[in-house]
Amino acid sequence: MTEYKLVVVGAGGVGKSALTIQLIQNHFVDEYDPTIEDSYRKQVVIDGETCLLDILDTAGQEEYSAMRDQYMRTGEGFLCVFAINNTKSFEDIHHYREQIKRVKDSEDVPMVLVGNKCDLPSRTVDTKQAQDLARSYGIPFIETSAKTRQGVDDAFYTLVREIRKHKEKMSKDGKKKKKKSKTKCVIM
């Protein structure tokens, strides 16, 4: 069974824990209790493949930012979460993405942009803004509501699919490099 290491990042209060708990335990946590770091595991079937999701729910508070490099190193894919009623959390996505790329030393890291709290009427981040940002990053965008469960499975499952595509691409690139290195030079 394939294991996928997913990391949920975003500013404090955007609903990272609520999304994760909704996926794992099928219930909505409405009281806000700032996370330092929590880890969850769940076995699911995605596109006919049974897999184990190892999900790291991270601290959004700035005082825990020193811990970010460590979990970013171990993560295979990242859910970059903002709240649709919090423009600052949307603007912060850029910083999370840049930090992930720096730590992973790669421009090509599996990510999904997630606009959470889409059940709320007080939207300050337009869907088109988020779609445009995701398009500019070359990553999928999904709106979710941890409260109603809308888009929750889709967000995590899409990230797994992005990781699969990335692994497939990397193995193809690896095979191309191996083929090239088999060419021999004969000096007579």
Rank of each mutant, 00 (worst) to 15 (best):
P140T: 05
I24M: 04
M170G: 12
I142P: 03
D119M: 02
Q99R: 06
A130N: 07
S181G: 15
E98G: 05
R135A: 09
V152H: 05
E49G: 09
K104G: 07
V29L: 10
I55T: 10
Y157W: 06
P110D: 01
M67E: 00
L133Y: 09
M188S: 14
M72R: 01
E62S: 06
Y64W: 15
E31D: 10
F90C: 11
V8H: 02
V186E: 15
D47K: 05
C185V: 05
D33R: 02
E168G: 14
D69S: 05
S106F: 11
E3S: 04
K167W: 10
A59S: 13
D47G: 06
V9E: 03
T20Q: 15
E31N: 04
D47L: 03
I93W: 12
D69P: 01
E107H: 09
H166I: 09
N86Y: 01
V45A: 06
R73M: 09
A130F: 12
K172N: 10
V112Q: 02
L53F: 08
K5H: 12
E107Y: 14
C51N: 04
I163F: 07
R164E: 04
V7Y: 14
M111T: 04
Y96P: 03
Y157F: 09
Q129S: 11
I21F: 07
A59W: 05
M111A: 02
T50W: 01
A130G: 08
A18Y: 00
D92V: 04
E91D: 10
I84G: 14
L133N: 14
K42F: 04
K16E: 04
V8W: 02
V152R: 05
I93V: 07
E76R: 03
V44G: 06
V8R: 02
K176I: 08
K175N: 04
Q22E: 03
V45Y: 02
G48E: 10
P110G: 04
K177A: 08
V160P: 05
Q25Y: 05
T20W: 00
E62Q: 06
S39M: 08
R102P: 03
E98T: 03
P34V: 06
T183L: 06
P34I: 12
I21T: 12
Y40M: 02
S145P: 05
F90G: 05
N86E: 12
K128D: 10
A83K: 06
R68S: 15
M111G: 00
I142D: 02
K178D: 11
L6S: 02
P121Y: 09
K16Y: 03
N85Y: 07
Y4S: 08
K167P: 05
D153Q: 07
L159Y: 03
Q129N: 14
V14S: 11
V160C: 07
D38V: 01
V7W: 12
E62V: 05
A155F: 04
Y96W: 03
Q22W: 02
C51D: 06
R68Q: 15
V186Y: 06
T50L: 03
D154R: 08
F78R: 02
V114R: 03
R135H: 10
A155C: 12
G77W: 08
S181W: 06
C80E: 01
G75R: 03
V186D: 13
A18N: 03
E98M: 06
L19Q: 12
T183M: 08
G10R: 04
T127K: 07
S181P: 14
G115E: 08
K42L: 06
H27N: 08
Y32W: 13
K5S: 13
I100V: 12
Q43N: 03
V9W: 14
S136E: 15
Q25K: 12
G60Q: 05
V9K: 00
K184G: 14
E3T: 04
V45I: 05
N86Q: 14
V112Y: 05
H166N: 12
L120W: 12
H27A: 08
D108P: 01
K184M: 03
I55A: 06
E62N: 14
V7R: 02
A18F: 00
A11H: 07
D38M: 03
Q70R: 00
D173S: 11
N116S: 13
I139Y: 15
A59R: 00
K175S: 06
D47S: 05
E49N: 06
G13V: 14
D119C: 06
K178M: 06
K5F: 03
Y32S: 01
